[in-house]
């Protein structure tokens, strides 16, 4: 039953937990470099193979933001509904279980996990939480992302 006056419909609730289309991303050196340059992050761990080889990672790894991008499939491919047209990114939280290494093939799968509503300055606002699980080529979960979207 939909609560009286709630903007969260049964149709929306039915989409909770439904997995979206997977996004597959190969972790390439150029892609990592572009990301590091966009951030303005000169850390040699992201770019210098000789340097990275001597660290505990044994090679280049990606900076923390790497999977927090539409290209990597965060909050992508998932069906979601909102009664509103205007939308904003509310925030992101990433939990890192293993490093993202150069040469990995990452598969991202997202699902809506939660809706909530709040009364804002311009009326009702809908908060949608989308969880994304990132697995590497060995089927190990390496990162779990939780993204909040606000529509109003």
């Amino acid at each position: 039953m939909t609560q009286e006056g709630s903007i969260i419909t049964d149709e929306m609730k039915a989409l909770i937990g439904v997995e979206g289309t997977p996004t597959v991303l190969e972790v390439e050196k150029g892609a990592i470099r572009m990301m590091a340059e966009a951030i303005g992050d000169p850390n040699p761990l992201w770019q210098d193979e000789d340097y990275a080889k001597k660290t505990k990672y044994g090679g280049i790894i990606a900076p923390p933001v790497f999977l927090c991008s539409p290209r990597a499939g965060i909050a992508r491919g998932v069906q979601r509904k909102s009664p509103f047209l205007r939308a904003l990114a509310g925030g992101d939280e990433l939990e890192y279980l293993k490093p993202v290494k150069l040469g990995d093939t990452i598969t991202a799968v997202s699902r809506v996990t939660e809706y909530s509503e709040r009364e804002g300055k311009r009326g009702k606002m809908l908060f949608t939480i989308i969880e994304t699980t990132f697995k590497n080529q060995r089927d190990e979960v390496i990162v779990i992302g939780r993204s909040t979207y606000i529509s109003y």
Binding site: D41, N43, T55, K56, P63, G91, D92, E93, Y96
Partner: peptide, 22 residues
């Protein structure tokens, strides 16, 4: 988010590990 990621990785160095960032 990426800038905050750099703040942390610069601080913890290569022996540190970022477990959660939000």
């Amino acid at each position: 988010f990426g800038l905050l990621g750099q703040l942390i990785t610069d601080w913890i160095g290569e022996e540190g590990f970022l477990k959660k960032l939000g």
